[in-house]
């Protein structure tokens, strides 16, 4: 990835941070604001990535597709399908206690991974989909393309940020926060708790699907292996909890900081040129470190770096 030297690497890092920031913002809407426990983030992300890839690629004998639609159609499709799946997951679970949603989202993420791994006609199985086009990729030189893509990602991240920030201070957001604090009270004031939760779950999933689409067009290749489901989902949870659940700035800060640590240590392990066996073990050590960091934050600083700014009156 080190094509344009350090600056080029920085741009790639920022694009990826931006994509993770979008995911973390989506999770902040679901968990930080409403208290919906989604541990199937990798699934919604994968649906977004594959949908956008299939919509935009040219005809290929290896997988479904050949629609060759523009980038923006792909991104919209990614969000739409991801949101639809969230809606389906929400129907049986959102009237129940929170842990049912948790278990069901893990189930849907696993099922999605199995489908993309086994249904070759759809997704070319483990070999994945290659040659996913990016906007103006043919026209711009590599360096400028990445810079251009950074602008696109930043625009989407900004949009997500503003949307959730605006929602947070709207009557809608206030209902969501009431649901998080006391579901009974929300219901007692005449709010249809199920529908509010559903709107929030679906909106969050649309945001996650869009992030998946952005990822697919940036890297140009996706396979089921890209989304080691639990590790990926866990990373985003750590980002939100480190940054501070309920705080949008915290979500973005957490995404950039944790992604920096994550890729930084990966870089370090690569640089050490260990044997494959030790490389796997070093990778494991990385996950252990980040798990311990999460547990310490939960135990010692549950509000994260930036806690939620509580207002008594809006």
């Amino acid at each position: 990835m080190v094509i344009g030297g350090l600056e080029g690497y920085l741009i790639v890092f920022l694009v990826m941070s931006g994509i993770f920031a979008i995911l973390t913002l989506g999770l902040n809407l679901q968990w930080g604001i409403t208290g919906l426990f989604n541990i199937g983030i990798a699934g919604f992300f994968a649906v977004g990535a594959y949908t956008s890839a299939i919509i935009t690629t040219v005809q290929s004998p290896d997988h479904l597709g050949g629609y060759g639609m523009p980038f923006i159609t792909g991104i919209l499709g990614a969000g739409a399908l991801s949101g639809m799946i969230a809606w389906l997951v929400g129907i049986p679970t959102l009237r129940l206690k929170g842990d049912y949603l948790a278990i069901a989202t893990i189930g849907i993420a696993e099922t999605i991974r199995l489908i993309f791994t086994n249904e070759s006609w759809l997704s070319n199985g483990t070999r994945g989909i290659t040659g996913i086009p990016g906007p103006l990729r043919e026209v711009l030189p590599h360096y400028y393309y990445n810079l251009f893509y950074l602008l696109i990602t930043a625009a989407f991240a900004g949009l997500a940020f503003l949307f959730i920030e605006r929602a947070l201070h709207s009557p809608w957001g206030r209902v969501l926060r009431t649901i998080r604090e006391d579901e009974m009270m929300a219901a007692a004031t005449g709010k249809d708790v199920f529908h509010f939760k559903m709107q929030c779950l679906v909106t969050g999933a649309v945001i996650m699907g869009v992030a998946g689409g952005l990822y697919a067009h940036f890297i140009g290749f996706i396979s089921p292996e890209v989304f080691k489901p639990m590790q990926f989902t866990f990373l985003i949870w750590v980002m939100l909890i480190v940054g501070g659940a309920g705080n949008n700035k915290g979500a973005v800060l957490g995404a950039v900081a944790v992604w920096g640590l994550w890729t930084g240590t990966e870089f370090l392990i690569d640089a050490l040129e260990l044997s494959t066996d030790y490389q796997t073990k070093a990778g494991a050590l990385r996950i252990i470190t980040i798990s311990i960091a999460l547990e310490l934050i939960l135990l010692l600083r549950p509000e994260g770096l930036l806690g939620e700014t509580k207002k008594t009156f809006d």
């Binding site: 929170g98 590790q231 066996d277 073990k281 996950i287 252990i288 798990s291 999460l294 547990e295 939960l298």
Partner: peptide
């Protein structure tokens, strides 16, 4: 005392911790 969902999150961390400890001790 912080509620079942916080415990649930921490158990996911514990799960990853245990799995990767196993991987380091006994190999992949």
């Amino acid at each position: 005392k912080r509620g079942s969902i916080v415990l649930l999150i921490s158990s996911i961390g514990a799960a990853l911790l245990l799995r990767n400890l196993v991987l380091i001790i006994w190999g992949p």
